[in-house]
Design a protein around this nucleic acid. Structure first.
Lengths: 403, 403
DNA sequence: CTTAATTTGTCCGACTGACGGACAAATTGT
DNA sequence: ACAATTTGTCCGTCAGTCGGACAAATTAAG
């Protein structure tokens, strides 16, 4: 009971911002004395600290502000994607403590070599934490794959060419050799799932309990928040929306089938429609964000082929989105990956198609938003998830010796 | 805190069956003395009673069995569908206390007349409860519609031709006039949602936390259980799967669009494929279950046109199902409505298509099951939901005077 | 048949933790 | 300067669970 009240106060402080004990008392319904006692324990555990004194508010004794102490605890998010690995550390206030991205051709290397690179990266994140006085409370790997989160195994990652790779065990073993131990839990999850959690926790649509996140890169992935909780499915394989069969007899997909949504709205589909194969924007060895900038430039300049391509892709995006909206009835649909970069040209045809396709009036009152977290959404979500353990049970943070 | 422990014990008794206080203690982790105290209060409230003494088990004093007292509390489920209205009462043990179905051409009548008929039916259910000593704790209406559950209004029911009908207010007003008051909450919900809850609570796949229910009648509806909770969506409009655009340029749908899944697997699609328009099985004035029996008979006799039709519909069923499985990764997909009646002929082509379409290996380990609750799934689910209020907070059941 | 062993259900004291009120401290308004 | 107000802490009270003691009811063993 005390545990859940500690969590209640800590969460309230994170969600609602710094405030006095008296205000916490009113807003949580707990007794003022109780709040004092809880806050004292949270301070002992280094999760919270006294802040400024509220001056000049109104009549009466000013309140002593209580705020999250970011230096106490951190969460680590690590992303392994097709052409890079990245690490990011957040403190309790969701402030970035460390961020690094390393270009790496993951497809061309065995998983062991990739895990070695991730180990190097993580060790640097660790060192940074130690320097800043942040104690890591957990770490989450984000991978574009079907993931068994319980065992920490990647079951199948088509775009990485991985099958049955025990990533958690592999990483923990390496970190143990390097650092002598990993004193916190390590998890893996699907990148779109974590990106959805990231958008939900700190994106432009933060706090929207019913949210669908779409990531558009080589593949098309989905992460779904249902009533404020992540949809995982029975085996953790939910959100595989790239292979919805929307165009029978259509183009061949990388998965071997025909007419998958991915063949209509994936990056390859856009490039095929917008450029000839010898066009530099189709060169996969160039940086993706720069290639997208070129396309955006052409669209801005009014290039008809580019605009037609974006119109077609946008319409196809609306077609698939209408299914997701009919099925989930989300409050908002967040576009990530390249969909966000080119969103201004995709939105109009997408919304037109959606309005005609969704059964509920006014497209179920669903908004479409562009991701504000960009390509870091997944690692931010992973770091955030690692912090959740502390917010669920603040007693996992050890009591500190008095100064 | 006491409230949640009361609920814990009551739920455990319902889910795990009758057992002694000592066993409840070890299974819930509560202290033996605490369990005794909680059980005493539940008995006072008429929710639970002492049952048989456990004899001949093993060494030691035999335990005094505690079991749910069905006579205490009941839940009422009412369904309004295209050609009938039905009412059903369940007691705490999910045993049917009352069940009645009345044929009614709902499309041909104004909503007011339908609510009058429902009022008559409900009054009979009420009388039956009074006779059996069952106190109704709640009532739920199941309707094939987009429903605003908060306000109790049907927003849009294409198959009933209803728009913005305040069903809860209308029914409560009528019942108040008839009976002088409605001393319990009345809710509305989508029929597929309630059927999914019914299957989850007491169907052949009861307890499966990740479950998708498909209802095949004139329309195709879906209800989804995610991690043991019903998916509702931001506006309560989730599960509208009948209008997924799977066949661009296909047949015209009742919704005005082309190529909806419903045009491939709805009852009309099967009839069009399996019979000529003048065939009696296409006559909507005949009883649906009898027409389905005729089709089943033809299939059993090996009629090639019927078998081809079932094969085509089964394949299309698998196509749409593969989307739902990719999106939700459920443990089981339950087929209701006519899909259940003709399931033995639909399953094989459906499973073949699914296996080829689902990204996760082995179709995400998703089973396909036929509904065991038949056309009563929705009203059973509604009655069950009405009981949930008591299981969440047993103190809503009044303390009874001692005998 | 008697006795030991075991398990059940209840009673009672102890303990945890929230609540309510009293009180001093710090500020604003008159 | 003084009243009014609000904050944070202290302390007694109270609800409710836990742990252990104990009688009751049964089986197994001698």
């Amino acid at each position: 009971m005390r545990r859940s009240n500690l969590a209640l106060v800590l969460r309230h402080l994170r969600d609602a911002g710094p405030r006095s004990r008296a205000r916490i008392s009113v807003e949580t319904g707990l007794n003022r004395g109780t709040v004092s006692s809880l806050v004292a324990e949270l301070i002992e555990r280094g999760l919270v600290r006294d802040g400024d004194v509220q001056r000049g508010g109104s009549v009466g004794r000013p309140g002593q502000t209580v705020e999250l102490d970011g230096r106490g605890i951190g969460g680590i998010g690590v992303e392994i994607n097709v052409d890079y690995v990245a690490a990011l550390v957040l403190d309790l206030t969701d402030t970035v403590v460390f961020e690094e991205r390393v270009a790496l051709d993951v497809q061309a290397r065995p998983p062991e070599a990739v895990l070695d690179a991730v180990t190097d990266l993580t060790a640097r994140a660790f060192a940074e934490c130690a320097g800043a006085g942040v104690t890591p409370a957990g770490m989450t790997l984000a991978i574009p794959a079907l993931v068994d989160t319980d065992s920490g195994v990647v079951a199948f990652a088509p775009n990485l060419h991985w099958t049955k790779v025990a990533v958690v065990a592999g990483l923990v073993a390496r970190l143990t050799r390097r650092l002598g131990g990993v004193p916190f839990p390590v998890r893996v999850d699907n990148d779109a799932n974590l990106a959805a959690l990231g958008e939900f926790a700190m994106g432009g649509e933060a706090g929207t309990a019913d949210l669908v996140y779409l990531t558009g890169e080589t593949g098309v992935g989905g992460g779904v928040m249902v009533d404020g909780r992540l949809l995982r499915g029975a085996e953790g394989f939910s959100g595989e929306i790239g292979h919805m069969p929307l165009n029978p007899g259509g183009n061949l997909c990388g998965c071997g089938r025909r007419g998958c949504w991915e063949t209509m709205v994936g990056l390859a589909a856009l490039l095929r429609l917008a450029a000839t194969p010898d066009d530099p924007v189709c060169d996969p060895s160039l940086d993706l964000e720069q290639r997208l900038a070129v396309i955006r430039g052409r669209a801005q300049a009014g290039d008809p082929r580019t605009l037609d391509a974006l119109d077609l892709v946008g319409t196809a995006l609306g077609l698939g989105a209408s299914i997701l909206i009919n099925v989930f009835n989300p409050r908002v649909l967040v576009l990530g990956g390249y969909f966000a970069s080119l969103g201004e040209y995709l939105l109009e045809p997408m919304l037109g198609e959606m309005r005609g396709r969704v059964v509920a009036p006014d497209a179920g009152a669903c908004r479409v938003a562009l991701s504000t977290l960009g390509f870091a959404a997944a690692s931010r979500g992973g770091a955030h998830v690692a912090l959740e353990a502390v917010l669920d049970d603040p007693t996992v943070a050890a009591v500190r010796h008095r100064a």
